[in-house]
Structure formats: structure tokens, C-alpha cells
């Protein structure tokens, strides 16, 4: 595990940037929310990666065994909260998209801008 060094973090940054790119470069509102989800998941992976201990196991007590190494439970707790909040955010965003589509007849950003003029 230790041999991997910072590889995980770099992949996390790559995923984060893919999500960020989708968010700023694509005009479709549903695609933007998918990009936001990619970004969110990359942050989850970052936290969970930091909690891992080489040779460790899930932080659930093993009966009758001494000297078990458990991974850090705190990032797990934080990310459990974040996943559920993330889905609440997506639901709110998607219902806004439905409303925008109803009012403007499109979910493409540039077409909405044309309509607003």
C-alpha cells in the first residue's frame, strides 16, 4: 500500500478536474449536474483514501483477536453524511432543471440566454 505513494491523490485530482470541466464547459443543465456528481465522488474518494491504513481492516471490532489494525473511522462518518447531502442537492438541482425546462422550453444554457434577451 505504501508503495503507491501519492497515486490515489493524483487520480482523485484528475476525476475532480473532469467533473469541474463538465460543470464549466458544457451548456446542458443535466450534464452539469452529472459533472457535479463526478466532482463530489472524487472528494469522497480523497477523504476515504486518507483514512486507509496499510494492512488495516474495516473499523468493526473483531471479537477475540488482539492486535488488529483498524482503518480510521472519522473520514467514513464524514463521507456518509456527505453522500446523503449530495443526493439532496442533486434532487433540488434536478427539480430546478425541470422548472427551467417548463418555463423556457429548453435546458441548454445558450438557448436560455437567447430567450431571456
Amino acid at each position: 500500500m505504501i508503495g503507491l505513494g501519492l497515486f490515489n491523490y493524483w487520480v482523485v485530482i484528475f476525476l475532480m478536474m473532469v467533473g469541474f470541466y463538465t460543470l464549466i464547459a458544457r451548456g446542458n443543465l443535466v450534464k452539469k449536474i452529472i459533472g457535479l456528481n463526478i466532482f463530489q465522488t472524487s472528494v469522497f474518494i480523497l477523504y476515504i483514501t486518507m483514512g486507509k491504513i496499510a494492512g488495516g481492516t474495516a473499523p468493526i471490532f473483531v471479537q477475540g483477536e488482539q492486535e488488529v489494525v483498524y482503518s480510521n473511522p472519522i473520514p467514513h462518518v464524514l463521507i456518509l453524511t456527505a453522500i446523503v447531502v449530495g443526493v439532496a442537492t442533486s434532487a433540488l438541482g434536478l427539480s430546478l432543471v425541470v422548472r427551467i425546462n417548463e418555463a423556457f422550453g429548453t435546458i441548454e444554457e445558450d438557448e436560455i440566454e437567447d430567450t431571456a434577451l
Binding site: 456528481n37 465522488t41 469522497f44 476515504i48 483514501t49 483514512g51 486507509k52 491504513i53 488495516g56 481492516t57 474495516a58 473499523p59 468493526i60 483498524y70 482503518s71 473520514p75 467514513h76 463521507i79 456518509l80 453522500i83 446523503v84 449530495g86 443526493v87
Partner: peptide
């Protein structure tokens, strides 16, 4: 990464 609780939440919710 040993985060089993997170894994099943992500699979169900995500």
C-alpha cells in the same frame, strides 16, 4: 479502502 458503510451507502444512494 475499508469503508464498508460508505460503500453500501454509495451503492444504494449514489
Amino acid at each position: 479502502m475499508d469503508a464498508v458503510d460508505v460503500a453500501f451507502t454509495e451503492a444504494a444512494v449514489g
